[in-house]
Design a protein around this nucleic acid. Structure first.
Lengths: 211, 211
DNA sequence: GGGTCTATATATAATAC
DNA sequence: TGTATTATATATAGACC
């Protein structure tokens, strides 16, 4: 659309390039505006010339920020340098998820072991404090000894896991108030609290969560 | 530039508007590309149609984020992070945190109760399945009865809590694979697994987490 | 929604000032 | 540099599928 046809490749002559830039930039802005008005489209256009000058078009009455926001919403992109809190948060969510799963598994495993350790014993009873056993049969005595060892192992394991879990949760001070939180797991593991109330208060409205 | 001249105002006929949009959008993208190539300009173009569909052009090899960054640098504007994925994620983190805390508390509470229910009994033993008691004293018998009830309550409570906890965790399918996940809590609560390996695999590098 | 055709409107390359 | 001219290339409105 001119006296001669030109190939779409960088114009080497700087003057010509500058002139063409001015003309075509004006044309592009007009076409952008036309499209926006005619078809009721929301358009943002940002142009940096080779010399670094910027010009822009933005559908009225919006501002470029609105369009960028909308763009980010649609594409799910973030401005890398601008804000990496998103990625950090996502990483943290994933991390937390994995660890919760791990803790959850271990804890239920321990609970299960307590139950079975009781169920598997013929007459396990309480064997601590070196008190006298009422049974005297050799086989039964051995069984009780084994159970005592198993129980102590389980109990020791529970404490150890509690420490470990507390350490993991301490990594999320924003949720748990850090190690100084009075609702510390170690305290929870040793001091009974009125947990049923706590429980109901803690997640009264599950329907608000969604992924 | 067509068989008839049209005024630059919103096209009322929806079909015509749609057709015009498609044609002019293609034209605009071409002109944008031409200007970018011919004059070595860095251009970003974002178009939202009236129906909400988005399309974009961005000078290669840049990405739209680069141009937006540059725009922000030049204009000094900041996108006010309307990106509500941030908010959603934060909400979800908080939600998850609260629920984990709740689950954690309840589970440790149950574990604690198991331990004390054994410690508090003089000779609690296993009292299930209606088997014969070896003790016959009236007081002791009553104690055993109470313990049996307490134990069954605890065990029933554990199952109930397991179901409840699974329901809560099911709200986070991205982490847990949803209800169909074979590592379901209910399974974990009844089927012993090689959890020590799982555990170590699950959080081998705690130092990667940070808030 | 997309593709084709064609007359016509528009954009612009080359030129001149 | 900017502006105007003008021949020509390109875009596209309207029509039909």
């Amino acid at each position: 659309m001119g006296r001669g046809k030109i190939a779409i490749k960088r114009i080497e002559n700087q003057t010509t390039r500058q002139v063409t830039f001015s003309k075509r930039r004006a044309g592009l802005l007009k076409k952008t505006h036309d499209l926006s008005v005619l078809c009721d489209a929301q358009i943002g256009l940002i142009i940096f010339s080779s010399t670094g000058k910027m010009c822009q078009y933005c559908t009225q009455p919006y501002r470029m920020e609105h369009i960028i926001e909308r763009y980010q919403k649609v594409t799910g992109t973030r401005i890398p340098e601008h804000d990496d809190r998103n990625e950090l948060m996502q990483q943290q969510l994933d991390n937390l998820g994995r660890k919760v799963k791990s803790i959850f598994r271990t804890t239920y495993e321990l609970t299960y072991t307590f139950k079975t350790s009781k169920a598997n014993s013929i007459n396990p009873g309480f064997v601590g404090y070196g008190t006298v056993g009422t049974n005297s049969g050799g086989r039964k005595q051995q069984h009780i000894q084994e159970h005592r060892a198993a129980t102590e192992y389980q109990q020791g394991g529970t404490e150890a896991k509690a420490v470990e879990h507390q350490q993991i949760l301490d990594e999320f001070p924003s949720f748990y108030g850090g190690a100084g939180d009075p609702s510390s797991v170690l305290q929870l593991a040793t001091i009974p609290q009125q947990f049923p109330y706590q429980l109901h208060l803690a997640h009264p409205n599950l329907q608000h969560s969604n992924v």
